[in-house]
Design a protein around this nucleic acid. Structure first.
Lengths: 238, 238, 238, 238
DNA sequence: CATGAATGAGGCTTCATTCAT
DNA sequence: GATGAATGAAGCCTCATTCAT
């Protein structure tokens, strides 16, 4: 009976992907000791493969070669581990797109381009942690959730402002700022659903590519189907 | 801290949103009886709010006013309920973008536009079921998962073909078919993360808007930063 | 390592004492089903022998031949089982000493006698449940604890009033009402520390005996050591 | 509901009652170092507030500002700490009522009075440690329990002998020695359930008061309800 | 069909105790 | 002596699932 937790990707499987190993460990505050950082890395992998609720605290600690109770020496609860991961990821993204190198770019085009490229690149490079950070929000307590929502909002504001500036200055086409910003963020985030570091795109390349798409979205005026020289037969088809 | 299953959206909450009520019940095969269909609808809401693993079979059955055992009269297991939901959703999407009204459109521009509009519209209208169908794949058994992957692939092929056709016929710019198709699908799916039926966009409007963005992505040639008339100071900044 | 829970009396041991079997089952509200009542009886025995915290939920349910989880079909938590026991015991005592047959006795002497006899008799007859009810209060939640304190207070009031009446009417000696009432309650309760139904005293006999002691305490004026005809040598000894 | 260990009295609370601070530290053999004595004092408070099983070794050591492992530098186990407390308390009581000043009193009245006064006074003064010593016996190992039972028996014998002497010499009424001794001990012990040093009675006053009650119990002949001048109506009522 | 008590397999967390530093 | 990370053995409680009614 009960065919529970058929976990498609086990910790072992992931161990086989060296790219996953390389990524998370660079994420955590160095103020933490080595063991808690390893636990966070293990948790990221487990949560990303099986989801928060399908991951046991045993999975996390045994991923570091420790006993079940060891987790609680360093974190008050499983939920706190999740929170730590999500909070860190959200903060890192925000600070990565808020660095002076990006913020100080005067030209709206280059500014947005840099923003999107960095945002996308970060999510690609940290796609495992990002998956947890985007898809496991339901595992957070109400209080922790609120805290994350704040950071998300700040990040959104950064993008909306960038698009807005381009429109206001007339460099971009006359587009719907809120909707287009939302779409740009979608492009930069949704890749976590399918991205793999060992695929054909490096994080940097994917960033550039996505930035190009974003620019097309903001710089092109709406396409008028009639004016687009579309044949008569298809006009009626719609 | 962190209460067990703090369920941001409870069944009750969702009950309060009539839009959610209206949507799922239209999804299920009419060959099924009324009770199983109600159970599926209840399950969709629970899975969407709390996730598959955080949802209990009691949540599902009590959402229809039935006792714990009732679920098993109609479904062999909780995982089968999930499978039924995900399979139905995937099939509906595929058939919705494969209808003659779309397939027979000759003009690549109008064809892609219709495709994206429909795809987006479907996900917006059924955003609750779509959330389950996209984010709870990890809850499926390996065998069921495979079955879903097939359908997803077919859907992807439809989009890739549409983009390809535009490029081949020279109607679209000379773009990277695979990457752009992927990005278009991202736009049409990612809205399930934030879309609400009671928001400012109707599914139809969002579909049109997204279609426009997709057209911009396929019809605009790459933007040359130098040629874009960017000022000198920022040129060096990059 | 760890020689935890050496439980002097196990459920089995107690099973051997038929007197224990006879007592508790008569305590519970008949509105409850048979299984919950059996669980309460089992819990009383476990808590009395090992204490609340040293009793496992498994001990309780296996004492009725059920599986570990069965307890939770009938009670929300272990603490609720304790509360139910303590509440029932406290209420029964109060109502037993508040019955018309006692309350309506006009004569203060006979009134107090009846009160003490009944109070003592109840604790003797239900000494196992009473032990839980008196010594395991620390296991209650704050809210539940408050509820019990209320009932205790009511019971205390009954005794204090009885003593007061005797003093006011001049039937008793001129004693300290509060302190003597407290002492009388001590006599009626402390027997739960050592009483056994199979000992030489029946609950009724012990009740009568204790009532006699209580009467001596209220009807005798303070003893003056000097006037008590005590020899000179001992006077200085003090 | 019901939080784990809702500890009505925490170490902090107790810290606030200077009387509690003053009492236990005087109990321990001076042959022990200062740290172990402080640990015992901390343990007494914890065990008294929450019970042995609900007290963690961390509670005890942190109550002295030490780390978890510190306890084991001085005691082999938590149970040994409990044993040390209970043994010390029991021995102190026995020796306190066995001092020459009491034993040499010739007069049975003054002898019993002194015995009860001292016994009561000790329990009042050390009511916190006494609570542990009386109510946490179930936490002891079988071997340790036996050792304690011995001491208790010796103490009981002292009281029984005192009462017996009074009866034999005709100074006391013709009472049931065993039962009355038991009742007297009840009066001297049960106060630990409710006594507080900051209440209206000092240990000495409570001792005197209880001694008076004991004397009334041994010196008064049984009260004959008929002869007690009770009115006719109540005679039949019984 | 539906019920709901019961099961049994964990899952999260706690905690007495150990041990390297 | 003291520390505090680590252990491993439970303990409370949950939950998918079964089955007699």
């Amino acid at each position: 009976m009960a065919k529970r937790r058929q976990a498609r990707f086990t910790t072992q499987d992931l161990e086989g992907l060296p790219e996953l190993d390389d990524e998370s460990p660079t994420l955590w505050d160095e103020s933490r000791g080595e063991v808690p950082r390893k636990l966070l890395t293990s948790a990221v992998r487990c949560f990303a493969s099986n989801g928060f609720h399908a991951t046991t605290t045993r999975d996390i600690s045994s991923g570091v070669g420790l006993s079940p109770g060891a987790l609680y020496v360093h974190f008050p609860s499983k939920e706190d581990v999740l929170f730590e991961i999500i909070r860190t990821a959200h903060r890192r993204v925000l600070s990565y797109v808020s660095e002076p190198a990006v913020l100080t770019v005067e030209d709206p085009v280059r500014h947005l381009r840099a923003l999107v490229a960095r945002y996308t690149e970060w999510h690609a490079r940290h796609h495992v942690a990002a998956r947890v950070s985007q898809y496991e929000l339901a595992g957070l307590s109400a209080a922790h959730y609120e805290e994350i929502v704040e950071v998300r909002h700040e990040t959104n504001v950064v993008f909306r402002a960038a698009v807005e500036r381009g429109v206001t200055t007339g460099v971009f086409a006359d587009i719907d700022v809120k909707r287009v910003s939302r779409a740009i963020l979608s492009l930069g985030i949704d890749l976590i659903r399918w991205y793999r570091l060992d695929g054909s795109d490096s994080p940097g390349q994917l960033g550039e590519f996505t930035a190009q798409l974003a620019l097309k979205m903001v710089m092109t005026p709406d396409i008028d189907l009639e004016a687009a020289g579309v044949g008569a037969q298809s006009t009626s088809a719609e």
